[in-house]
Every structure is written in C-alpha cells, then in structure tokens.
Amino acid sequence: MAGRTNPNVAVQALALKRLFPNSQVRISAGYLLWRYPVRPCQASDIYELELEYRQGATPKVKVATPQLVPNEDGLLPHVWDTGHLCVHQLGDWNPGQLLTRTFVPWSMEWLVYYELWRATGIWYGDGPDRLDSASQRGILHPYIQPRVN
C-alpha cells in the first residue's frame, strides 16, 4: 500500500485559510509564511503570531506583537535561543501533520501558559508534576526578541 504523501505548503496554506479565513498566508516554492492575531482564550490578550515553514523542516513560530516580557533576569520559559517559541519535543512533529493541529494551537497554548506565568511565576504547561521549583527553574532561557519578517 502506498504511503500517504505529506501535505505540501499549498495544502498547509489551505488548511490555515479554512480555519482562519482572515489570516495572511504567503507561499512560494516549498515555503510558507503565516501571520495572524490570535486570542488564545477569551480572557487572553491578542498576539500576532508569525509562523514560518519550509517544506519538510521543523516550523518556527514567534510572537510578532506585542513584545514578550521576560522576567527581571531576562528569561522566558520554553523559548529557543533564536527567540522562537518552543512548543514541541523531539518526536511530536513530523511533516505529515497539519500546522492547524500542531504548531498553531501549540503556540496558542504556549501563550495561555505564558500569561499565567507572568502573573504567578509558575509555568503550568508541563503538567502538575512539574510545578516544583527545580523544574520551573530548568525551563527558563534567555530571551532575545526575534526579528519579524
């Protein structure tokens, strides 16, 4: 039986437009750039997400506006050195998956946990068994505001 082909950037763009009809999606050969202001839950602020995807590679997502606010030591939980949000672990993502079911909602989840973290200093996103101070310290990384395309 032939394996399913991975969704190309056009299919990804279509899925993004279907779920977020007013969002901006730019595609060129094997490349997709999506921008959209999301309100992850009713109580949240609005954040403009920018998602970059090169066919077959790991997508990258960042917050274009407003600027994320690190703690007084310049640290944020679960960010890459590049300032992108780190919303997956090894094995969570493969190119057969739709961005609408992965990186987009994963980033929205990140934002809810980020707002909770700003108010409480606690990152709830790793589960109830990771609320101890050692676990909480271990997820903080220096944050550099990424460049917006």
Partner: peptide, 14 residues
C-alpha cells in the same frame, strides 16, 4: 481542529 498531543522544550534548536 483537535490539537495533537505534544510537550514543551527549549534551548538550542534541534
């Protein structure tokens, strides 16, 4: 869209 399960990580890009 149902959200796929995942975890958060961080540090240097893999």
């Amino acid at each position: 869209q149902r959200v796929r399960q995942h975890g958060f990580a961080g540090g240097r890009p893999n």
